[in-house]
């Protein structure tokens, strides 16, 4: 199981690998979804997977949480790995009455203090007694985040967690996520369509289209030809527009104008992006 781990140690890397896949191939109803994928997630890093619809992003996450098995290749997980999982926005039928506190007790009951603490960490401590069906989109997703934090995870996995939120809502969500990472020291692996916000908040970006097209820092990926081919030339600008006020390098906005900067370079961390 710990194949990747031992390789890492042999090559002298200090960082520990929490989870990964090695040469994974996944075929669903005759269709090859993932082709020879290898990736690893290290402790405390924020990794984002971007890719067009049908590129296998969700399949890759499902592989990592163990919801599906690869047809070929291996899944690697460190011993006793605890995963917190935030699924795509889910729909709770309005015929099902359930409070936030009770929802966090499913399927196993958890001490009330732990529930309260998780809600607090996710920034929604005040919602405990509310009905799930009456939450706003942003509140709902933070409750989902709180739920994923219950087992004090080493690795948080989020699948399109901000789908349906407006830009301010998703920016606030990612801010909270960065705070949670700093507070709990967990790694974060997420999938998102929102290139600009999510890439800025990541340590590493993996561009997926059935296979890993390219990966690296957000700056590296947003300049990579494979990425530009998938998302079009505007996509490169997306990161630049988002980062321009935090980087010291001069970037061009979508109109090609050179933007002035008067910002502290220390603020270039994704966690500092305001809502």
């Amino acid at each position: 199981m710990n194949m990747l781990n031992s390789e890492k140690h042999a090559s002298g890397h200090a960082k520990s690998v929490l989870a990964g896949v090695k040469n994974a191939v996944v075929t669903i109803s005759g269709q090859r979804i993932l082709q020879d994928i290898s990736l690893e997630i290290e402790a405390e890093e924020i990794v984002t997977i971007v890719g067009p619809n049908g590129s296998g992003k969700t399949t890759l996450l499902r592989l990592l949480i163990g919801a599906i098995a690869p047809d070929q290749g291996d899944i690697v997980r460190s011993a006793d790995l605890r995963i917190g999982y935030v699924p795509q926005k889910l729909h709770i039928d309005p015929t099902l009455p359930i409070t936030v506190a009770r929802f966090l007790q499913l399927p196993v009951s958890t001490p009330a203090e732990v529930v309260a603490q998780s809600l607090e960490t996710a920034g929604v401590g005040h919602l405990e007694a509310r009905q799930m069906a009456n939450l706003s989109g942003g509140e709902f997703q933070r409750v989902m985040l709180a739920r994923a934090l219950l087992n004090n995870p080493h690795l948080l996995i989020l699948d399109e967690a901000t789908q349906g939120l407006d830009q301010a809502g998703s920016a606030a969500f990612y801010n909270r996520l960065a705070l949670v990472r700093d507070q709990l020291g967990c790694a974060v692996l997420m999938v998102s369509h929102e290139l600009h916000v999510v890439m800025a908040a990541s340590d590493r970006v993996i561009c997926l289209n059935g296979h890993v097209c390219c990966q690296g820092t957000p700056e590296h990926v947003s300049a990579a030809p494979e990425y530009l081919e998938l998302f079009g030339p505007q996509a490169a600008g997306a990161l630049a527009v988002y980062r321009h006020q935090h980087d010291h390098h001069h970037h061009h906005d979508l109109d090609g104008e050179c933007l002035p900067h008067d910002h502290d370079p220390g603020a270039a961390h994704g966690a500092d992006h305001g809502a």
Binding site: G66, P87, L90, Q105, L106, P107, S109
Partner: peptide, 19 residues
């Protein structure tokens, strides 16, 4: 009961919880 409720709310969440 709890397992069925979890599966009802989200099969994915249930799966992640080992159900």
């Amino acid at each position: 009961w709890s397992a069925a409720l979890t599966v009802t709310i989200s099969p994915d969440l249930a799966q992640a919880a080992g159900l």
